[in-house]
Design a protein around this nucleic acid. Structure first.
Lengths: 188, 188
DNA sequence: CGCCGAGTTGAACTGAATCAAGAAACGTGG
DNA sequence: CCACGTTTCTTGATTCAGTTCAACTCGGCG
């Protein structure tokens, strides 16, 4: 997070006062491998930034899990629709490895929005990042085959993919574990 | 738009002064059926709200078009990633029917952000709407079959779908025109 | 040691892609 | 307003990627 915070400060002019107000609102939270960070049905109260570790977001549909996102080091995550609308989340958020994350609550973010400049920035950057990722994902679901999607994932997060169980990767790619197992065999 | 603006005003306390500043930044633009509103490769300079008509957003990939969104009456649209990042758009935006839309330029929106409260509101509502739609779409691509996606689209926009050519619907659903033609035959 | 969840492999099946050809609708100019 | 050409849609036959169901393997753990 220090890296990230430094990048933010370098890139945007933020007053010391604003900075402090913002920084003081951030909470560190840690979770162990397989912990549920947010249960579906509950309202997401945090917008997070990952310092370390890997998380996934998934929905449950007719006894199957649909993984909609992984979160890696230095990226934002949240069950963002729920966070924005204050309605129950239809997604679960789970730690895949032990994780250490920085979070800001909805109320504090709203306060920061009105009281400082850099809150807006934080909120805006998070919104941008999350929207852009969803758009890219949409295109990859529409234009690529399952095998191409897997290769893309490998390329983008080479060293991280090894920590993620095959079944989660498969549900993210949108195929069955069997099909992914065969793809792996084919390309190796 | 009047309806929309009234809803905004009713729902949120906006001062007359802010309101006027905001309203004065909005431009009405009209396009004819099949007009290109934004060409891919150009930077999206507008965030729009549709007063009347239907638009679509599509990318071109190996001689095929991938439609990623339709925009109907009373909803926001933009090649939003480009709008946010100020980088060239990888999407085209096209009028499917004659359309009448309200737009605000990037610069004016930034000015409104700093000078008024309701600019934030406008920007935030647009971001929320666009993100939430993308998330729903992601789920529908992962959990539903092509036929189910078509039925959902029919259900959500019954009266509007008839104005959209089959090939655009097919590329939105993620199948070939032939396959959609067969689905239509099957369910009728 | 035996159990259990995760991954692998096989065989049959299915939804959608592809290639190809014909029918319908649409716009443009005479 | 009709005729023609072009685009869009439909339909058929074949192929293919991915599903489903089932059986088997492997590694970890009580």
């Amino acid at each position: 997070m220090h890296n990230f915070l430094e990048i933010l400060r370098r890139q945007f002019p933020i007053s010391n006062k604003d900075w402090e107000a913002f920084y003081n609102c951030l909470e560190v939270r840690t979770f162990s491998k397989k912990d549920i960070i947010l249960q579906s049905g509950k309202v997401e109260n945090y917008l997070y930034f990952i310092e370390n570790g890997i998380i996934r977001i998934f929905a449950e549909r007719n006894e199957k899990e649909i993984t909609t996102a992984f979160g890696f080091r230095k990226s934002f995550f949240s069950s963002y629709t729920s966070f924005l609308t204050r309605e129950p989340s239809c997604y679960n958020v789970q730690a895949i490895t032990d994780v250490s994350i920085w979070g800001i609550t909805y109320n504090k973010l709203q306060r920061i929005y009105t009281e400082t400049q850099c809150g807006q920035l934080f909120g805006r950057l998070a919104a941008e990042e999350l929207f852009i990722k969803k758009s890219q994902r949409e295109l990859s679901l529409l234009e690529l085959s399952a095998e191409e999607r897997y290769l893309q994932l490998l390329k983008d997060h080479t060293e991280l993919i090894q920590y993620i169980p095959l079944q989660y990767l498969a549900s993210y790619i949108g195929i069955t574990p069997q099909a992914l197992s065969r793809i792996r065999k084919r390309i190796s």
